[in-house]
Amino acid sequence: MSVLAELLKREVRLLCRRPGELLNPLVFFAIVVALFPLALGAQPQLLQAVAPGLVWVAALLAVLLSLEGLFRSDFEDGSLEQMVLSPQPLALLMLAKVLVHWLFSGLALVLLAPLLGVMLGLPLVCLPVLLASLLLGTPVLSLLGAIGAALTVGLKRGGLLLALLVLPLYIPVLILGSGALQAALQGLPSGGYLLWLASLAALALALAPLAIAAGLRISVAE
């Protein structure tokens, strides 16, 4: 479909022309991770024990932060109205939009995570599990967060509300993702967690776009 190709071109152009939107969540991710050794003390054993949860909480907050502006500029300049009125299925368009956003911001986050993991003292054998869990988990975070972003895009200060709506929905991903990492850290198999994360990702890919489209239609109609 040519419209999907055009959408990809458009989104990539928009993201490349404001690289700050991509970089800021990454810097935020690194800063949050760096805060914990400063707050807890730098004992390697303690840091290694809390590293799985810490990396995941930081990644989750960074994804959430990056999504606040996902639909904002399109809403303000009327592009969303045009998308709602288009004969193309809105859910499909929005799925593509969220995936492009994830490819640029989520994937960068996944690639940065092993570096931060090593700084927290995670053994190298855990890094593939860290990568795999984030690779499966962050798309779910992006898709669920996009539902919240779609519902709050019409509000002047939607940032805090977005967090309030979306963070409870993030809990299963957080449990499974940090659980996988913890299992790997203790030398236990982590395949079960990763499979669960994969099924959550499949579920989110199938259902979240419908909710995103419904949310955007409501926000545009206001």
Binding site: R10, R13, L14, S73, E76, D77, G78, S79, E81
Partner: peptide, 12 residues
């Protein structure tokens, strides 16, 4: 449809 906000993205 051309509305008040006409769907023109500033960065393009």
């Amino acid at each position: 449809w051309v509305g008040h906000a006409a769907g023109i993205q500033e960065r393009l």
